[in-house]
Design a protein around this nucleic acid. Structure first.
Length: 216
DNA sequence: AAACGGATTGGCT
DNA sequence: GCCAATCCGTTTC
């Protein structure tokens, strides 16, 4: 792969970029797992950063007490989740952190995948400036708030087309076997009662950028 | 119109 | 390990 001329138009871009049909898969658990190893890109003012997705969580639409769409809730904020798959859902958490989600499945089925950690791949120097720490520190992209910040994702990235020029995902052929993927309960969703125990967090075994707790 | 609380993080003890 | 930071969508009065 080459990266020439202002960092735009990666060679083989057409074949590598995930298309709408990928995101419209109705099995969000499958997608959360399948997204491990895919490359998440952003381009802001001609500056490209990208990271390998190494940790995700699935949010299972109206049936999931941890989901913002639980019980079919439709508010101004959550309306985007009911859109057909292939766009972003970014919201502010604790007043400080922007959390990036991928809206998946078909229209009116509000499934989503939270990106919890990436491994820096492109534009590490830019990530260092955004995070004010060296990329040798795993914390630079570990955890959903940190990963989003390193990639320059803020509220302006809400409702973005994931097949566009500002944010997209590529498949570079990285694959993990089932024994390289750890499944476990999601983080920070104690309010979801019994659904907090569902094993819908997925991460790459041994990857240093996976957020804590990272045992398995 | 006012209060509540969260899909977190980093700094300090 | 503990806890403050800090915003705004959502709920409640």
């Amino acid at each position: 792969m080459k990266d020439k001329g202002q960092g735009k138009n990666f060679e083989c871009d057409i074949e590598m970029k995930l298309q709408y049909s990928y995101y419209q898969n109705q099995d969000v658990i499958f997608l959360a797992k399948d997204l491990l190893g895919k490359i998440l890109f952003t381009q802001i003012n001609d500056e490209i950063t990208a990271g390998i997705i190494v940790e995700t969580e699935a949010y299972f639409g109206v049936l999931d007490k941890a989901s913002h769409a639980y019980g079919g809730r439709r508010t101004n904020r959550t309306e985007i989740l009911y859109h057909e798959g292939g766009i972003s859902y970014v919201y502010l958490c604790y007043g400080i952190h922007h959390l990036f989600n991928i809206v998946t499945s078909v229209k009116d089925e509000p499934h989503a995948v939270l990106i919890r950690a990436v491994e820096p791949l492109v534009g590490k120097d830019i990530m260092e400036l955004r995070r004010n720490m060296p990329f040798t520190k795993a914390a630079i992209t570990s955890g959903p708030g940190s990963a989003a910040k390193a990639l320059g994702i803020d509220r302006s990235f809400n409702k973005k087309d994931l097949s566009g020029e500002e944010i997209w995902i590529e498949d570079h052929g990285i694959r993990y076997t089932s024994d390289q993927i750890i499944e476990g309960p999601r983080i920070g969703v104690a309010y979801a009662q019994e659904d907090a125990l569902l094993p819908w967090r997925f991460f790459v075994k041994g990857n240093p950028y996976v957020s804590k707790p990272n045992k398995g």
